[in-house]
């Protein structure tokens, strides 16, 4: 565990230093040494915070121990496939929103959906949450433990979640062959304020 933390710190240092080199347009000894000093300072400043386990991460850790598996780590190669796919989704999303907004009758039919996913850790849930916000017609309202609350703009925009393609895509970032991430019976859709548990 200590070794992983040390390696993580080194990766973070390289990332920060690369960020400095991008920002600073001056490549001489003085400025590069300033960059090394600054990156080191930032790493040391945040060291204790990075060692701290947050509430949700403690829960994830406990579950990982229960199921007796290694903690999951993100796969960089898959991320390189995922990001362009997400950008394409954003383009589609914006065209859909543009069509709806500029349509004289505004054919919207909003709905609130609740569903549970079997994603391995908080990181994965956060990635899924932000991806849902960026993809066609859906916005994450709340994440509570495993339960997502999503606001959808139209019936058509629910399909990405209903057929489970987006959650599966996120789960693939962590595992090669994920099991069933989303069960259809778990999805609850409410289209009225009456009788909803809002």
């Amino acid at each position: 565990m200590k070794q992983i933390f040390f390696l993580n710190s080194i990766t973070k240092f390289i990332l920060l230093f690369g960020f400095w080199l991008l920002l600073s347009g001056h490549y001489d000894v003085q400025h590069i040494s300033m960059g090394l000093f600054s990156s080191l300072f930032v790493i040391l400043f945040n060291l204790k915070l990075r060692k701290h386990y947050f509430y949700r991460e403690k829960l994830d850790e406990a579950r990982a121990k229960l199921e007796d598996v290694q903690p999951y780590r993100i796969r960089i190669g898959r991320l390189l496939y995922y990001l362009p796919w997400l950008v394409w989704q954003i383009v589609v999303a914006s065209f859909q929103v543009a069509k709806v907004v500029l349509h004289p009758k505004m054919p919207i039919d909003p709905a609130l959906m609740r569903f549970k996913t079997g994603l391995p850790n908080t990181e994965a849930r956060v990635i899924l949450g932000n991806s849902i916000t960026l993809t066609p017609g859906t916005i994450t309202v709340q994440i509570e433990d495993d339960e997502f609350l999503v606001h959808a703009l139209m019936d058509a925009s629910q399909s990405g979640i209903l057929d489970g393609s987006l959650p599966t895509e996120v789960a693939k970032l962590y595992e090669k062959k994920p099991g069933q991430v989303l069960r259809k019976e778990d999805i609850k859709i409410s289209k009225s304020n009456k009788g909803a548990e809002v």
Binding site: L16, F19, W20, S24, M34, L49, F54, R56, N130
Partner: peptide
Amino acid sequence: ENPIVSLVSRVLSPFIMLFALYVIFHGHY
């Protein structure tokens, strides 16, 4: 606790700090 905000801010905070140090050190350019 909002997991999205909490995790994103923890990831971004070091980079914002480094940007701030860049602003301090490059004050004359």
